[in-house]
Design a protein around this nucleic acid. Sequence first.
DNA 1: TAGAATAGAACACCAGGAGAACATAAAGGA
DNA 2: TCCTTTATGTTCTCCTGGTGTTCTATTCTA
Lengths: 204, 204
Amino acid sequence: MSLALTRRQQEIYDYLREHLWEFPHPPTLDELCNALGLSSKGSLHKQIQALIEAGLVEPMNNQRRGIRLVEEDAELPAEDALPMMGYIAAGQPIEAIDHQETVQVPEFLRTTRPCYVLQVRGDSMIDEGIMDGDHIVIEQRDSARNGEIVVALVDGSEATLKRIEQKQGAVILHPANPTMEPMTFSPDQVQIQGILVGQMRRYH
Amino acid sequence: MSLALTRRQQEIYDYLREHLWEFPHPPTLDELCNALGLSSKGSLHKQIQALIEAGLVEPMNNQRRGIRLVEEDAELPAEDALPMMGYIAAGQPIEAIDHQETVQVPEFLRTTRPCYVLQVRGDSMIDEGIMDGDHIVIEQRDSARNGEIVVALVDGSEATLKRIEQKQGAVILHPANPTMEPMTFSPDQVQIQGILVGQMRRYH
DNA sequence: TAGAATAGAACACCAGGAGAACATAAAGGA
DNA sequence: TCCTTTATGTTCTCCTGGTGTTCTATTCTA
């Protein structure tokens, strides 16, 4: 298979892959025409037909609202996927997500030890360039060196992402946000769950 | 097959291998002429024809789908690798790196269009959470919507990473650093080279 | 001097678009 | 149950411009 697509066919296919999910129902030809700036569904139908013959779109035999992409068959074995554990917001427990989810993480953003991914909520680390919505890669560990950014569980309930400073008999957690104050705890109040090793953000 | 290439044919082939990926679609003869500084597609066609006969370029028999290289079924280091083009520091040309280098980029940090990776030098976008040393993923484009963060070439020499605002007859580039001022240019001073679609940082 | 490369014009060809007409399925209504 | 309406997919034809192809004359270069 895999006939060579013309440029326009490629464009339309790209568009479908990018925007198809936005439609509440699979779109009609007219709706797609509208979205693509065409004024003749006949023309679009011809293009779609080509994509069907190329095996990229499921054939729709007179079905209505029948435009669907064929399943990306191969679930990538995803050698480079790490589990997405949930959301971390300063001062709250990590909010786990129910269904198993994974996130692709390039090799250089992780370590050789077990890692997992969290998504950040809130701006408590904004001065470190970690923003609301960022994905962060955490290496699983129960101890840290001073100056590392850690996921810490305070009093067994609140999870936070903070820079850590450990002294004799005290643990100080420094947020990276000028509107927040460092907080001091006794070592047995603070349980380290991992340290920050990578961060990713998408802009689109 | 495997006729000896003339010098010019070799040059063109080298160019294709190096720059073909930059085109959003396989380029037409006219586009390639433009890119190569030729003014006659007839001439280019003869050269391309020779490359086709040598088995290096996919034949296009009156089909209009642009110039494609035949599949180098060889290497392709990783499906998810993008070329690392060099360093970008506000106010300086992009510093290209000589040797070919690639960076692993997870799928959700890029788009379906051609992308590449730069490494940031300096703090000009620090309020956007983009810090010195970060890897950024750029989608190759020559236009942008207002509010997008772009790689812009100013006066043909200085490259910067800034949020763009385009008005009638003026382009304003907003740095995300309180110590720097927005700068206004005329549209023909500013050439957009791509838009920011992803960002990565390592902490170890 | 011969082959390579370029410019430029002219040509051939079809992808892609518009739009109309038709076919068919879903939804109602009587 | 049958007919009508409506929404939507399908199939046409026609046309245009973009795009590949071919040719010839000219310049470049070894």
